[in-house]
Amino acid sequence: MDPADIEISVKDNVLTISGERKMPEVPEGARWHRNEREYGKFTRAIRLPFQASDDKVEARMANGVLRIAVGRPEEDLPKRIEIKAA
């Protein structure tokens, strides 16, 4: 499907992907022999293990496969604690 028909959003820790698979354009008078592919609207929400900020989310589509990379925000990363000399 066309990347333009996909909507991706993040709010708090929920990543939502929605879109619409459109019917292919066929010439008028064409007869359908088989119709196995499915069309219509879809949506899916995935709960992330951390709060995502939208500037750390990157989506790429290659050959019909959508790849979304969600980065963990700095403040959510484990912090190293220095041990001070007594």
Partner: peptide, 13 residues
């Protein structure tokens, strides 16, 4: 692969 097949005046797609 899932397949759609349509027949037109020129041939098959």
């Amino acid at each position: 692969p899932l397949t759609d097949i349509v027949e037109t005046d020129e041939g098959v797609t």
